[in-house]
Amino acid sequence: MRSPLARFLVRRIVTALLLAVGITLVTFVLTNLVPGDPVAANLGQRALGDPAIVAQWRADHGLDRPLPQQYLMHLGGLLHGDLGTSQQSHRPVLDDLAESVPATLELAGAAIVVSLILGVAFGVIAALRRDRLPDHVLRVVSLVGISVPTFWLALVAFYVFFFRLQITPGSGRIDPGMTPPPHFTGLYTVDSLLSGRWDAFASAVGHLAAPALVLALYTIGLLTRFTRSAVLEVLGQDYVRAARAKGLPRRVVLFRYVLRPALVPVITVAGLAFGSLLSGTVLVEAVFAWPGVGQYAYKSATTLDLPAVMGVGLVVGVVYLVINLVVDVLYGVVDPRVRVS
């Protein structure tokens, strides 16, 4: 049983690495296809008037060379961990990302964990209490979650819970007067726990709660729906009736016989949902002034900061790859037919 799983893993990882190279090519080409001149976006009015300065700037940023060569330079840099220098912040893109990526991962990670727990639980309860009150209530909740636009929800949540009720802290990742915890992972909640800073932990969790819940509502709705229909389908299967005919306790039938096959479609949807959740962070980060990748991407795109845009593209692409890898591996873990065939 071990070795087929290991082979399956190796195959998936090799594919993922090849895809990663593909991502660098796509981000590079797309970024260069953008109609817009980074020179115009970055140099002032007077500097633009001087051809010598413009040429100098282009040469400094390697823009005077042919595209294939630029791509190879870009790839070479990537191998050394060099994602170029942001034209806006004048700092290495890698350093900028090292600050913003953990912030977004913390937000999106918290949201996906909450959605998985609540979405799957709601879906199972709705299926088991089909057509009764809990089912009706949960179906309405899930419909609302799916239908309400995230940016609107973010604004309303911010207004109601912070401005009116004052039960959530304001914007940012931590209270303004508080020093962030020492850097281990870049995730404030984890870092403050690791360093035993309980005050920072409480503050970080408080700041995380509202944006993460706002972000999670859509995925909760989605996962509730898919889990409900997946569980209902499995409940009608012969093998569930066969398990009951064996006199197995209800608990065993539910967890061993029903949930496991029902999780297969749920894993697929959860992977996709994580993607939509990442794009949702752009708006939520803007409303809650969360210093994450979404905000960084927005700023870089509007100023045509190409190295930064490519950096963000690469990070998002790699995150998608990792999610897909995890999803594929989970298929293999849950369903033996995937790995033994």
């Binding site: 012969d238 093998y239 066969a242 005919a245 006199g247 197995l248 016989y257 096959p261 369903d335 037919r337």
Partner: peptide
């Protein structure tokens, strides 16, 4: 109490073994 009879005293074989055995359990 019926659960103590099911499978232990009275057992059942179903029509289609490709659906009555769980595909993900050994």
């Amino acid at each position: 109490e019926l659960d103590a009879v099911r499978g232990a005293k009275i057992a059942m074989v179903f029509q289609d073994p490709s659906t009555s055995l769980h595909p993900m359990l050994t």
